[in-house]
């Protein structure tokens, strides 16, 4: 199958998910309503307000986060030659959690501050991992992974300590809700601030895809081909970290997208590196849109989105692995 056909199919799936997501919600908007809003007939009405200020903003944010997390996951998996690592291998999520919790506990929950602190926390955690990897090894692949595990453990310990200290009647619930991720509090400002980071980084990633492909090579081989391996890893980690930190800082922790999207794409299409990188974007957006739609329609209240993504992740992974196994037998 050609790349363009694969891309077309994935984008069709994304479009379906997008329409379903735009149509569903507490406030009823039919396809007809949306079309009339889009054609400008219904401007100024409640329908138009809901559509432009709530539904569309949320869907755009979800799609953007889905793309960012999927690409970030695939970059990390390629960088570490490990199909099971996720975007938070080097501690982005842990650091972001600490940032968010600090804002919840000590600054009475200004939303902008929470976003800024969790973004900064995510970046700092990864810098800490890089620093550690220089101290325990040579800054190569294996030492990075180990440094990431250490950072993750430290962050986890801090998160637990903060939760222990938090006021159980007010703060604890907010923290837990953040740690399970949700797009319920999305607004235009958040969408814009994510897009400012995510869109250019995705663009750069796609632009440099042939260089990034060298990540798939063995470290020493790549070096003898004239590649500055350490710089390549740093660039890859920087791109992946910015993507994850930008999306996690507005939604809280959203798990599994970074693992699911690239795996589904490469199992379905047997795609090459460049293709998987490209296709992971619509695939990640589509999966997260579906998950978010389920999260906000399944019950009367909003469910945290990681409940859904983790469940879908488990089911899909099982189905794919068993199908793959049967094919091999």
């Amino acid at each position: 199958m050609k790349t363009s056909k694969k891309l077309f199919l994935t984008c069709c799936f994304l479009l379906v998910c997008l329409v379903v997501s735009l149509l569903s919600g507490r406030y009823e908007l039919s396809l007809h309503d949306i079309l009339s809003v889009l054609s400008g007939e219904a401007s100024g009405t409640m329908n138009a307000n809901i559509f432009y200020h709530v539904r569309l903003v949320r869907c755009a944010q979800v799609a953007l986060s889905g793309m960012a997390l999927a690409v970030s996951g695939y970059l990390y998996q390629s960088c570490f030659h490990n199909p099971l690592v996720s975007p938070d291998t080097l501690g982005v999520s842990g650091g972001a959690s600490i940032g968010a919790i600090i804002s919840i506990l000590f600054f009475h929950d200004g939303f902008l501050l929470r976003q800024v602190l969790s973004f900064t926390g995510g970046i700092l955690a990864v810098l800490f991992s890089l620093l550690l990897s220089g101290m325990i090894g040579t800054g190569k692949r294996s030492s990075l992974l180990l440094a990431g595990i250490i950072t993750g453990a430290l962050a986890n310990s801090a998160v637990m300590a903060f939760k222990y200290l938090a006021d159980p009647t007010t703060q604890l619930a907010v923290i837990d809700y953040w740690l399970m991720g949700s797009f319920s509090l999305i607004n235009r400002r958040k969408l814009l601030s994510t897009a400012i980071i995510v869109v250019p980084v995705l663009f750069l990633t796609v632009l440099f895809r042939y260089r990034l492909k060298a990540l798939l090579l063995d470290e020493e081989e790549a070096q003898t081909l004239g590649i500055n391996v350490r710089r390549l890893y740093r660039i890859c980690i920087a791109l992946a970290t910015l993507l994850t930190a930008a999306s996690v800082s507005v939604s809280g922790i959203v798990s599994w997208i970074g693992l699911l999207a690239p795996h589904i794409v490469s199992l379905l299409f047997r795609s090459s590196f460049e293709e998987t990188l490209l296709l992971s974007m619509p695939a990640g957006a589509a999966i997260l849109l579906l998950s978010d739609t389920v999260a906000r329609t399944l019950t009367g209240a909003e469910l945290p989105v990681s409940i859904i993504t983790s469940f879908i992740g488990a089911v899909v992974l099982f189905v794919f692995l068993s199908v793959k196994r049967r094919r091999n037998l």
Binding site: F208, R209, Y210, G226
Partner: peptide, 14 residues
């Protein structure tokens, strides 16, 4: 083609 990665354009590959 990875053997010539430094001769190739940054954006288009071989």
């Amino acid at each position: 083609c990875m053997g010539g990665i430094n001769r190739q354009s940054l954006f288009t590959g071989p």
